[in-house]
Write a protein that binds this DNA or RNA. Structure first.
Length: 526
RNA sequence: GGCGGCGUAGCUCAGUUGGUUAGAGCAGCGGAUUCAUAAGCCGCUUGUCGGGGGUUCGAAUCCCUCCGCCGCUACCA
């Protein structure tokens, strides 16, 4: 099965912050999970570059737009790579493939009769890159950009007949209850569309940076009509029709809750007009807010508030895995979350250092100390005692469902509460460190069970903490039985046949190095 | 103004077809241990379940009202 997943494309007028990263990680977990389940995943990300703000930002630096956006794209990709985002493609909307596809698409909609030209006079906000209706204006200013003057602009623009699609959209929501998720977002969109849709302006006059309208070169395509098309131009619409047909429609668009209306109303209407299938699902995730460590105040993340946290700050100090773990375990993906260094350190120390990392350390240490790392005869030993009363099959089924529904925080909570706790408790009840003094055979049974726990944990955390998962899997010679790249969630259920186990983890002075050194915020200077 | 959501232990939250002494994680405290990153395990403490009223044998859970916060949206000006 193919699985096509996308994230929103970002404005490259400033570097990505942790809120942007939240979205990419959430999409990445889904992509990695689907790959484990055997799907042919295509995971797309990109930057939205055909905006006036971008060309202005370039101008400020004395650059042409293209070199500017290319450099920003490089910086974005660097951050995503550092966060272990496994995207298969990264589209820049200034690329030729996007331009070609856009021209084809807008022509198709034009030919379908859903685009018309209309003169429009209104107050234009350069900050929003949008006309403001009277009711949106407060004290003669745009509330979002109170420092800027609104300009009175009159021009002829092309409009998309969005209003004509309301009934079809509502019918689609009705027929596909999962189209918009989570539920709360769906309700908002339904009431929005029921209230009536207005036709939208889709072009601007007099700009050279952007995509010219094919049937009127004086106009360029306006941001949303252009940006949304990245989802199809990236996979060959207009340039490689065969590839496009085999990849589209998307299985899920992962986006921020603020742009659900564009993805759930405008975008489907555009596709309907062009005669293309609609994406199967749109997931509007929540926002990350910044909680001030001193005052406890919770704020939106914004440059002007000076509370921006760059992903690289956290990655450099505390690792990418720590970053991923924090956001996936502490912030419900469909709802809002908050970030503070204090909470980060708590979650990291409790979940990664004390629990996950420590289980790894104590297990390997004992294997090395009591058996020189070689568990001879392990293949004949049943490795399921550590599970005690845990129904692994039911757990795995539940996790698959929850990850599929983007309930990552709940899935992680269960892995910790049910699997990791079971393993730690097993050590305590069997006391291998005492057993080793009197009964090495019995001790070996315990170690084989713990190795199995390590293997199961590795599999279950693979979509979330790919690096740690791999380290866990390579702690023993599990790859002799089954290559890591082929491991899926079903492999957690039973140990595959293979040679006797031995420790293959990297050791420092005969001991495993701590995977997650504890965080001391004061020492870290955070 | 309309629609919707939220307000539960110090912190983050679970918990609604109403029903035994309201739960989890984190933090805190105590205990027994020592393989381990002074981690892990066992045990413990705290809650007017936002305020008030009502329905009921019985409400965190249903109804009314008030307060506070948030999302979407309308209109007036």
């Amino acid at each position: 099965m193919g699985f096509y997943i996308t994230t929103a494309i970002d404005y490259p007028n400033s570097r990505p912050h942790i809120g942007t990263a939240f979205e990419k990680i959430g999409a990445d977990v889904q992509a990695r999970f689907r790959r484990m389940e055997g799907d042919a995943v295509h995971f797309l990300m990109g930057n939205d570059e055909n905006t006036i703000k971008v060309s202005q930002a370039a101008e400020k630096l004395g650059l042409e737009p293209k070199p500017y956006v290319d450099d920003m794209a490089r910086q974005f990709r660097e951050v995503w790579a550092a966060l272990e985002i496994s995207n298969d493609d990264f589209i820049q909307t200034s690329e030729e493939r996007h331009h070609v596809g856009c021209r084809k698409f807008i022509q198709a909609v034009y030919d379908a009769g859903d685009i018309y030209k209309k003169s429009y006079t209104g107050l234009y906000c350069d900050g929003c890159e949008a006309f403001k209706t009277d009711k949106e204006i407060v004290d003669g200013r745009c509330p979002n950009h109170p420092n800027r003057e609104l300009r009175r602009v009159e021009e002829e623009n092309y409009f998309f007949r969005l209003s004509a699609f309301a009934d079809r959209l509502l019918a689609h929501y009705e027929a596909h209850p999962d189209f918009i998720q989570p539920e709360s977002r769906r309700n908002e969109i339904v009431s929005l569309v029921k209230a009536g849709l207005l036709d939208v302006s889709i072009s601007r006059k007099g700009f050279t940076w952007g995509i010219p309208v094919p049937f009127d070169p004086d106009q360029t395509i306006y941001v949303w009509f252009d940006a949304l098309l990245n989802y199809i131009t990236a996979i060959g619409y207009g340039t490689d029709e065969e590839r496009f047909r085999s990849t589209w429609p998307a299985d899920v668009h992962v986006i921020g809750k603020d742009i659900t209306r564009f993805h759930c109303a405008l975008w489907p209407a555009m596709l309907m007009s062009a005669g293309l299938p609609l994406p199967k699902r749109v997931f509007g995730h929540g926002f990350v807010y910044r909680k001030d460590e001193g005052t406890g105040e919770v704020q939106k993340i914004s440059k002007s508030l000076g509370n921006v946290v760059e992903p690289m700050d956290i990655i450099d100090k505390f690792s990418a895995e720590g970053f991923r773990h924090y956001f996936m375990s502490q912030c419900p993906f469909g709802g809002d979350g908050e970030f503070s260094f204090e909470r980060f350190a708590d979650a990291y120390n409790a979940g990664l250092a004390n629990n996950l990392g420590n289980l790894y350390s104590r297990t390997l240490s004992m294997c090395v100390k009591y058996f020189d790392g070689k568990l001879d005869g392990s293949s004949a030993i049943d490795p399921t005692a550590w599970l005690a009363g845990l129904d692994l099959g039911a757990l795995v089924e539940g996790l698959k469902r929850q990850i599929g529904a983007f309930e990552y925080n709940i899935a992680l909570q269960r892995i910790w509460a049910e699997v990791l706790d079971a393993a730690n408790r097993y050590i305590d009840t069997t006391r291998p460190f005492s057993l080793a003094k009197t009964d090495l055979e019995a001790t070996k049974v315990v170690m084989v069970n713990l190795a199995e726990a390590i293997r199961v944990v590795a599999i279950l955390i693979k979509p979330f903490l790919p690096e740690t998962a791999s380290t866990f899997y390579r702690a023993f010679n599990f790859e002799d039985a089954r290559p890591w790249a082929e491991v899926g969630y079903a492999d957690a259920l039973a140990r595959p046949a293979g040679p006797d186990l031995r420790v293959t983890a990297e050791l420092v002075g005969g001991k495993p190095a701590p995977l997650f050194p504890k965080i001391d915020l004061k020492a870290a200077g955070a």
